[in-house]
Amino acid sequence: MELWFLGTSAGMPISGRNVTSIALRMPQDRGTFWLFDCGEGTQHQLLSTPFRLSRLEKLFITHLHGDHLFGLPGILSSRASLGGTEPLELYGPPGLREFTETALRISETHLGYPLHIREIEEGTVFEDGAFSVEAALLDHRIDSFGYRVVELPRVGALNTRLLAELGVPSGPAYGRLKSGEDVVLEDGRTVRSSNVVGHPIAGRVVVVLGDTKPCPNAVKLAQGADLLVHEATFAHDLADKADEYGHATSVQAAETARDAEVGRLILTHFSSRYKPEDLAVLEAEARNTFLATDAAIELTPYLIPRSSLSE
């Protein structure tokens, strides 16, 4: 799994930084990617990545401010034009359906795939056998959600060397043991699944927060995550301005990461007053509180390994 930041600027793009969007590359066996927010220009940024729009599976909108949303109609249209036929799930606050359907209707955009729009509340918004996604409201000027993506534990590896020593023939018996079923061999011996299957492989937890002031839900949602993405709209000398506009500073983001005991913090959503070369200052401020902090660099992959927090 990897994160790619397609935009890290707050409010409006500047030279060298686009407005907010984040791509999450899913595990290889899934072969898809998810998007979190879709600011104007997102599809242009995707052209500089390995992602194909036809493989976009889910799109999560944190809130309905334009710098997080205005690229959505273009993404939906281009996905159809590029031959996407698989269903696309779109999640976000109430009002998302009206925005999306109005834009598509007025522009006479016809999609060649099913679009399922889910206007969400707090709680679990998606779950299948591999992942779950939980949403929680944050503290911004309008409803703004954070998303907690949890990779569910996987079955441990088969001890094939031990199976060979026991004389278990490869094939269906291996699959039954892997699924937790005990197997009786032709000579009457019973091979127990618990003896030949390793410990479950813990999944990873990634938390992407929308715009927010410091708030209890941010800490709760991020608790124990392997990676937290948190806005840092302002340096800490502008804490009063951050509070006035419903945003957080670099230090406040680090305090949330520290309190939630996450593995890594990546800062994003930087005010347009900060040029790319200024981001080292925000990063350094945050590292004084939470060392494992990086200021996001656009179009750079951030690997999400299985860390000690998830083992």
Score class of each variant (00 low, 15 high):
Thr190Met: 02
Ala260Phe: 09
Thr256Asp: 02
Gly156Pro: 08
Asp187Pro: 02
Ala103Trp: 09
Ala296His: 09
Thr300Lys: 13
Arg273Gln: 15
Ser307Met: 03
Asp139Gly: 12
Thr8Pro: 06
Gly175Thr: 03
Arg161Ser: 09
Thr85Gly: 06
Cys38Gly: 07
Pro172His: 07
Phe70Pro: 01
Glu231Val: 04
Val208Gln: 08
Ser21Lys: 08
Leu104Thr: 02
Ile117Lys: 06
His236Ala: 04
Ala164Phe: 05
Ser271Val: 00
Glu108Asp: 15
Ala295Ser: 14
Ile201Tyr: 01
Gly66Gln: 03
Trp4Cys: 10
Leu282Tyr: 00
Asp237Thr: 15
Val183Thr: 03
Leu162Glu: 14
Leu53Val: 08
Thr100Leu: 08
Leu3Trp: 10
Val125Trp: 00
Gly83Ser: 00
Ala260Gln: 02
Pro50Ser: 14
His65Ile: 11
Phe70Ile: 04
His269Thr: 02
Pro301Arg: 11
Glu283Arg: 08
Arg148Gly: 03
Met12Trp: 05
Asp226Met: 07
Ala232Gly: 15
Glu2Thr: 12
Val155Ser: 03
Val19Thr: 12
Leu163Gln: 05
Val197Ala: 01
Ser193Gly: 10
Leu6Ile: 12
Gly11His: 02
Leu177Phe: 07
Gly146Thr: 05
Gly7Arg: 04
Asp182Arg: 08
Ala286Gln: 11
Leu115Ser: 04
Leu309Phe: 14
Ala225Glu: 03
Glu151Val: 09
Thr160His: 11
Val205Lys: 10
Arg105Glu: 14
Leu72Tyr: 10
Val149Ala: 05
Gly84Ile: 00
Glu40Met: 05
His63Ala: 06
Glu121Ala: 15
Pro50Arg: 14
Pro153Gly: 11
His44Val: 02
Leu24Ile: 11
Leu279Tyr: 01
Trp34Tyr: 12
Leu82Asn: 10
Ser54Asn: 01
Gly167Tyr: 00
Leu35Tyr: 00
Met12Leu: 04
Leu35Val: 05
Val229Pro: 07
Thr249Tyr: 04
Ala232Val: 09
Val183Lys: 00
Leu163Val: 07
Ala218Asp: 01
Asp240Leu: 15
Phe51Met: 02
Ser193Ala: 14
Glu108Phe: 13
Glu181Asp: 02
Arg52Tyr: 06
Pro13Phe: 04
Ser9Cys: 12
Thr190Pro: 01
Phe270Asp: 02
Asp67Trp: 08
Ala202Arg: 13
Ser272Ala: 13
Tyr174Asn: 07
Phe70Leu: 09
Asn195Gly: 11
Ala296Ser: 06
Gly156Phe: 13
Gly224Val: 00
Phe145Cys: 01
Phe70Arg: 03
Leu238Ala: 10
Ser194Ile: 14
Glu283Lys: 01
Leu163Ala: 12
Ile106Thr: 13
Asp278Glu: 13
Pro169Phe: 00
Leu24Gly: 05
His65Ala: 12
Thr32Pro: 07
Pro153Val: 07
Arg154Tyr: 10
Ser308Asn: 13
Leu282Ile: 04
Leu162His: 07
Arg154Gly: 11
Ala254Gln: 09
Arg25Lys: 14
Ala292Cys: 10
His140Gln: 13
Ala286Lys: 08
Gly95Asp: 07
Ala225His: 07
Ser272Glu: 05
Phe60Gly: 03
Val155Phe: 06
Arg306Glu: 10
